[in-house]
Each structure stands twice: as structure tokens, then as C-alpha cells.
Amino acid sequence: MALTLEAEQRLADAGLIEFFEANEPAWLGTAKQTKAFVAGNFPPGSLIRRDDVAKALYPLVEVNELLRDQLSADKLRGKFWIRFFVDLIIDRTWERLDEEDEQAAG
């Protein structure tokens, strides 16, 4: 799913956008690796969509200790926080993933 305004506002209010920005290189790297994994396992020539990557990224984010510690410290217990955070990662890194893929291919 795409990042909605409501989700972005909730993430901002909870301090999770600041948390993302403070750790952005790590999230970018995780998103790049996930997209490469998806691309390598989809049929050749398949269009890789945001939701394809998000689906594969979710279990990685779900067990990420930095995020788990942050959610615990802020007493954010709902599973929707992880979904919102995955959507944030995809939203904030997607264009750079495409650019880097195009540069590597070109």
C-alpha cells in the first residue's frame, strides 16, 4: 500500500519519521536489497511494483531490532505501525532505488 497522509501524520506525531531520517542509510540499504531480491526471483522482465517490494520488506522490518526498540520505548504496540513504517520506507526511497537501478543497468 502507498503511504497515506493519515499514516504519515501518525508517523510524524509518534516521532517515527525522525527515527527513519536518523537511520535513513540503513533503511535505504534494506530497501535496495529487498528490491534486488524481488527482481531476482520474479520472472524475467517483470515490472517490480512498490507493493511487491513492500510485501517482501515487511518481515524484515517487523524483526528489525532498532525499530522494535523504538516502538517499545514509545509504547507503540499496534501492528499497523510496522505497515505504516514499511510504507514510509518505500515512499521515501523508491525513486532513488529506481535511479540507482537504472544507473547500474546503463
Rank of each mutant, 00 (worst) to 15 (best):
M1A: 13
A2K: 05
A2S: 10
A2I: 10
A2W: 04
L3T: 08
L3S: 06
T4G: 04
L5I: 12
L5M: 10
L5K: 13
E6Y: 14
E6L: 10
A7V: 03
E8P: 02
E8C: 01
L11P: 01
D13F: 09
A14D: 04
G15Y: 08
G15V: 03
G15M: 03
E18W: 13
F19Q: 04
F19M: 06
F20D: 00
E21A: 09
E21T: 13
A22L: 13
N23R: 07
E24D: 08
A26F: 15
L28N: 04
L28M: 11
G29P: 05
K32T: 09
T34M: 08
A36H: 12
A36P: 12
V38Y: 02
A39P: 08
G40N: 05
P43L: 15
P43T: 15
P44L: 06
L47R: 15
R49L: 10
R50M: 14
D51P: 01
D51I: 15
D51E: 14
D51H: 12
D52T: 07
D52S: 07
A54N: 02
A54V: 05
K55E: 07
K55N: 08
A56E: 03
P59D: 03
P59E: 02
P59H: 06
V61I: 09
E62G: 02
E62F: 14
N64Y: 15
N64Q: 11
N64F: 12
N64M: 11
N64L: 10
L66P: 08
L66H: 10
L67M: 05
R68Y: 01
R68H: 06
D69C: 06
D69Y: 08
Q70I: 10
Q70G: 03
Q70T: 13
L71P: 02
L71Y: 04
A73K: 06
A73I: 05
D74V: 11
R77Y: 09
G78Y: 11
K79W: 10
F80V: 09
W81L: 03
W81D: 00
W81K: 05
R83Q: 05
R83C: 01
R83W: 04
D87Q: 08
I89W: 03
I89P: 02
I89L: 02
I90Y: 06
D91W: 04
R92M: 06
W94R: 07
L97K: 06
E100F: 14
E100I: 14
Q103S: 13
Q103P: 08
Q103F: 15
A104P: 06
A104T: 14
A104K: 11
A104S: 10
A104V: 12
A105L: 14
A105W: 11
A105N: 14
G106C: 13
G106A: 14
